[in-house]
Nucleic acid binder design. Structure first.
Lengths: 197, 197
DNA sequence: CTTGCGAGTGAACGAACGTTCACTATAGTG
DNA sequence: CACTATAGTGAACGTTCGTTCACTCGCAAG
C-alpha cells in the first residue's frame, strides 16, 4: 500500500463529521479520545492541526475549533446524471456542501412559501412546491417574484418596461397582470424545492 | 405594555442565532457578555437556563450547550402564497427549520446530481435542476429513481408490474425503457431543487 | 411599610480544557 | 548501520470555563 494511513484518517474524519452533525457542536479533546481511538490528547491535538491544514476545521478563537462547510456540509455534490454516477464502492470525496449555505445567502431575509395555483407551471413551479423567497434584493427583469398586486399575493415573472411593471405568468391560460392601484414586491424567488414522499 | 421584557429577550435570541449561524458554534459565557450586554456571567447563566426551558438550546453534556433546530434552523416557513404573506413589520416566529434537516433524512446516503436532458420535464424536472438522491431505500411504484440501465444512467419513474420493471419518462417524446441486460437503482429522488441566479 | 420576586452585579471556586514537553516505537532511506 | 520522519503515549501546566454564592436594585402586591 502506498498510503497506509489514509484510511484511518478518513475514518476519523467521518466520525468527527457524524459527531458534529448529530450533536451540533465540536467534541472536546477528551471526547475525541474515544471518538478517534487515541489514548493521548496530544495525538488528538496534532490530528486537529492536520484537519485545520486540510480545511476541515478552522480556529474560531484561541483554543476553540469550528467546523467548516467541508466537514459538516451534509450533501455530496456529484456530476450530471449522464456524466456518470460513482459506484458506492468508490465513495470518493467530490465536494461537500450544506444545503442551507448552498441555497441561502441571507438567512435573516429568506422565507419559505408553499405554492398553490398553477400560474407558473411552465416554469416548472407546480402547486405544492416550496419557494425560497429573499426579501429586499434588487429586482430585475426575468426574476420570479412574490408580489402583492391590488391586495392579492401571487408568484409571477417580473417585467419592467419604462415605468410599466407587468407580472407575467408562465401559463398560457392566464393573462399578464398590470397593477392598477398597488404593487408590493414581497421578495425574489431564489430557489424552488419539490419534496417527494 | 404587558410584557416589557419580551423585546430584549427576543433581541438576545436573535443575536445568539446570528452568532451560531456565523461561527458554527456556541459562544462561551464570556463572549455572551458582550453579545447580550450583560456584565455578569451569572446573568448569562440564568438566561441560558431560560433558553433551555424554552427549547432554544439543550444540554449536550455537563457544562456544554448545543443549539436546537429552533435556534439555528435558518429558514422561516410561512403559509401558502394565497393564504397571505406577513408584512415585514410583523415578523413573528411562525416556524424555523433547517433546509438540511427538512430535506435530508440520511445525510451519509444522500447525494446531489445535476440533471441534464428533458426526459422528466412533465414532472417539473428541468435540465440544470438538482436532484437529491438517497441511496438504499425501498423503491416503490411511482418513485422517481436514478437508474443505470444497460450501462447508461438516467432519471425515470419506477414502475414494477410482476417481474417486469419499466422506467417511464415524463415526456411524451420518449419511450418507456425496459431493461434488457442490467438494471442498477442508484437511488430514489427525494427532492428537486432549482436555483435561480 | 414590608414582603417577595425578577433581573442583574461581582467575586470566587473547582473542574475541565487545550496546549506543551519529553519520550517511545516503527518504518523508510542512503 | 545511522538518520529522519511519522504516529502515538503519558504526564504536567496554566488558562478559561460553567457554576455557585452573596448581594443590590426596582417594582408590584398585600
Amino acid at each position: 500500500m502506498i498510503m497506509p494511513y489514509a484510511k484511518p484518517q478518513q475514518d476519523r474524519i467521518q466520525r468527527l463529521r457524524a459527531f458534529c452533525l448529530e450533536h451540533k457542536r465540536m467534541p472536546a479533546y477528551s471526547e475525541m479520545l474515544n471518538l478517534f481511538g487515541y489514548r493521548s490528547k496530544n495525538a488528538v491535538y496534532r490530528f486537529m492541526q492536520k484537519l485545520e491544514a486540510a480545511g476541515y476545521v478552522r480556529r474560531a478563537a484561541p483554543r476553540k475549533f469550528a467546523p467548516t462547510g467541508r466537514l459538516t456540509g451534509s450533501i455530496r455534490l456529484l456530476g450530471t446524471v449522464q456524466a456518470g454516477f460513482p459506484s458506492p464502492a468508490e465513495e470518493e470525496l467530490v465536494d461537500v456542501l450544506s444545503l442551507d449555505e448552498f441555497l441561502v445567502q441571507r438567512p435573516e431575509a429568506t422565507y419559505m412559501l408553499t405554492v398553490s395555483g398553477d400560474s407558473m407551471i411552465d416554469a416548472g413551479i407546480h402547486p405544492g412546491d416550496i419557494v425560497l423567497v429573499e426579501r429586499g434584493g434588487l429586482t430585475r427583469n426575468g426574476d420570479i417574484v412574490v408580489a402583492q398586486v391590488d391586495g392579492e399575493w401571487t408568484i409571477k415573472y417580473f417585467s419592467k418596461r419604462g415605468r410599466i411593471v407587468r407580472l407575467e405568468p408562465a401559463n398560457k391560460a392566464y393573462q399578464p397582470i398590470v397593477p392598477r392601484h398597488s404593487l408590493v414586491i414581497g421578495g425574489i424567488v431564489k430557489a424552488v424545492i419539490r419534496k417527494y414522499r
